Computed example of a mutant assay.
Amino acid sequence: MRAGICKLTGQHGIFLKSHIIPAALTRGDKSEPFIEAGNGRPPKRSWNSWFDSELVIQRGEKILTEFDTWAIANMRRARLVWSGWQGSAVLEPSVDFGATHRIIGTPDNFGLHSLRDVDSARLRLFLLSLLWRAAVTRRPEFDDIQIPASDEQRLRRMLLEGRPDPLDFYPITLTQLSTLGPHHNLTPVCRDYDFGPDKDRGLPPAKTFRFYFDGLIATVFLPGYSAAMYEGISAIAVGGKPDRLEVPTIPFANSFQHKNLERVVEEARTNWPEKSERLNMASGRRRPEG
Rank of each mutant, 00 (worst) to 15 (best):
A3E: 10
T9D: 00
G10D: 03
Q11L: 15
Q11C: 13
G13F: 13
L16P: 01
I20E: 06
I20Q: 00
I20R: 08
A23F: 07
L25N: 00
L25R: 04
T26G: 06
G28Y: 13
P33V: 06
I35P: 00
E36S: 05
N39K: 14
N39S: 14
R41S: 08
R41Y: 02
K44Q: 02
S46G: 09
S49C: 03
S49D: 10
W50E: 00
R59N: 11
G60P: 07
E61C: 06
T65V: 03
E66M: 12
E66G: 15
D68C: 14
D68S: 15
A71P: 12
I72K: 02
N74W: 05
M75N: 11
A78Y: 01
L80Q: 02
G84Q: 04
W85E: 06
W85M: 04
S88C: 08
L91H: 07
E92W: 08
P93C: 04
S94Q: 05
T100V: 07
T100A: 06
G105M: 02
G105P: 01
P107C: 06
P107G: 00
D108H: 06
F110I: 12
L112V: 10
L112C: 05
H113K: 14
L115Q: 00
L115F: 01
R116M: 06
D117I: 13
D119A: 05
S120R: 00
R122N: 13
L123W: 03
L127N: 03
S129Y: 02
R133G: 13
A135H: 08
V136G: 03
P140C: 04
E141H: 15
F142V: 04
F142L: 14
Q146P: 12
P148D: 09
S150D: 05
S150M: 03
E152L: 02
E152G: 02
R156Q: 07
R157V: 11
R157Q: 10
L160C: 12
R163D: 13
P164N: 13
P166V: 00
F169G: 05
T175C: 05
L177P: 03
S178D: 00
L180A: 14
L180N: 15
L180T: 14
P182L: 04
H183G: 12
T187N: 15
P188R: 01
C190I: 03
D192V: 00
D194S: 11
K199P: 02
R201F: 10
L203P: 00
K207F: 01
K207S: 08
K207I: 14
T208F: 15
R210H: 04
F213Y: 12
D214Q: 08
L216F: 11
A218Y: 01
F221W: 14
Y225P: 06
Y225C: 08
M229S: 03
Y230F: 10
Y230D: 01
I233C: 09
A235G: 10
G240N: 01
L245Q: 03
E246Q: 04
E246T: 07
T249Q: 07
T249F: 07
P251M: 09
A253H: 07
N254V: 01
S255F: 00
S255L: 03
F256R: 05
Q257D: 07
Q257S: 09
H258W: 03
H258M: 03
N260Q: 08
N260R: 14
L261I: 02
E262T: 08
V264K: 04
E267T: 11
R269T: 04
P273W: 10
P273I: 05
S276L: 09
E277K: 15
L279C: 07
S283V: 14
R286L: 15
P288V: 12
